[in-house]
């Protein structure tokens, strides 16, 4: 058998957008190859409702692995579930989101299957009967095209915010069935016990459609209130440059750049960030970039679609006012 298999990550019985993106790309690849799309769901309960959503997005088959011990992520058990599904279906292509879970899981599965894995991909195409995958390297300073040799399946994790969710999906057959996985106690040697949500932060920079970041010009932790104000007005997440994180003004979870997170939002607003290579590498693939900086020669302006040369402490409050007007209209 062949086809495309997507591991669709769920937390608390919900898909996040990167899972919908992975199912959508799975559907597009299945259509291109003329084969079936299977979606694997792993969790404790509430999976049948998600199976319906996967079918609506085009899944021909949905495999369910439920077990109370799978409520939270357990690397080895999840890897066994994916490997078991892959063993049963022998897919040509195995996809998942390049999320915290997907990145962790995919590598473990690839080693188990002896398969090739392309991480954090931005495009998948056909090449000589196989797949050719584009992925940024050096945090986006260069783009690699990788190909697979020999081993099956070809595996890839997909960078969030890059692959569009199918807007008007054609439902798949959605044939849903449980998948038996031979779990043993030893598959739960490492397991997540609980999750601590970061205080006040609802949106992670790597997942957000809009990111507003502050840099050295923030001068201290208190001024990040300006960044939050603009992020709130835009409905985006708060990011930061390495300079601001290293100064201790904001948690490293927020860091965008080569030693932080690489983001591809629809809109990236850089405030008081000069644009060190380090930082540019982490955000240059954003679709629209706005820079606000006092220094007209700051390198960030070379990358910006729109730039304002000015003091961010004057610019941001005015901008928030204008955004409210535009959004209210």
């Amino acid at each position: 058998m062949a086809g495309v298999l997507v591991f669709a990550e769920q937390r608390d019985g919900k898909f996040k957008k990167p899972s919908l993106e992975a199912i959508s790309e799975g559907r597009r690849q299945s259509d291109r190859l003329g084969c079936e799309l299977s979606v694997l769901l792993v969790g404790a309960d509430g999976l049948s409702e998600l199976a319906g959503q996967a079918a609506a997005l085009g899944a021909d088959r949905v495999l369910l692995v439920s077990d109370p011990r799978l409520k939270l992520y357990a690397a080895e058990a999840y890897a066994l579930a994916v490997a078991t599904a892959a063993g049963k279906l022998d897919p040509d292509l195995l996809l998942m989101a390049s999320s915290a879970m997907g990145r962790d899981l995919a590598a473990r599965v690839a080693a188990r299957l002896g398969a090739g894995l392309a991480s954090d991909c931005t495009a998948i195409a056909g090449e000589g009967g196989g797949f050719s995958i584009r992925r940024p390297v050096y945090s986006g300073k260069a783009i690699a095209t990788v190909v697979f040799s020999g081993a099956r399946p070809a595996m890839a994790t997909l960078r969030p915010n890059v692959f569009p969710v199918i807007a008007q999906p054609k439902a798949g057959r959605g044939e849903t069935a449980p998948l038996e996985v031979p779990f043993q106690e030893k598959h739960f040697r490492c397991r997540v016990n609980s999750i601590e949500a970061e205080k006040g932060a609802t949106l992670d920079v790597s997942e957000a459609d809009i990111v507003v970041s502050g840099g050295r010009a923030m001068k201290g932790p208190e001024n990040f209130s300006y960044i939050r104000m603009l992020a709130d007005a835009l409905g985006g997440a708060v990011g930061a440059s390495r300079a601001a994180v290293d100064a201790g003004w904001i948690d490293h979870q927020h860091q965008v750049g080569q030693t932080g997170k690489v983001v591809s939002p629809t809109l990236y607003v850089a405030c008081g960030i000069s644009g060190a290579i380090q930082h540019l590498a982490g955000m240059s693939s954003s679709k629209v970039i706005v820079a606000i900086n006092k220094d007209a020669d700051a390198p960030i302006f070379k990358l910006a679609d729109y730039g304002i040369v000015g003091d961010l402490y004057e610019v941001i409050p005015k901008m928030v006012e204008e955004i409210k007007k535009v959004k209210g209209a």
């Binding site: 996040k16 939270l72 992520y73 999320s99 915290a100 879970m101 040697r189 490492c190 397991r191 997540v192 016990n193 609980s194 999750i195 601590e196 949500a197 970061e198 932060a201 609802t202 949106l203 992670d204 790597s206 997942e207 979870q253």
Partner: peptide
């Protein structure tokens, strides 16, 4: 362990 918007508390042998 760092995840989107928080931390997972993981136990391991």
């Amino acid at each position: 362990r760092e995840i989107e918007g928080g931390q997972e508390i993981v136990e391991s042998t």
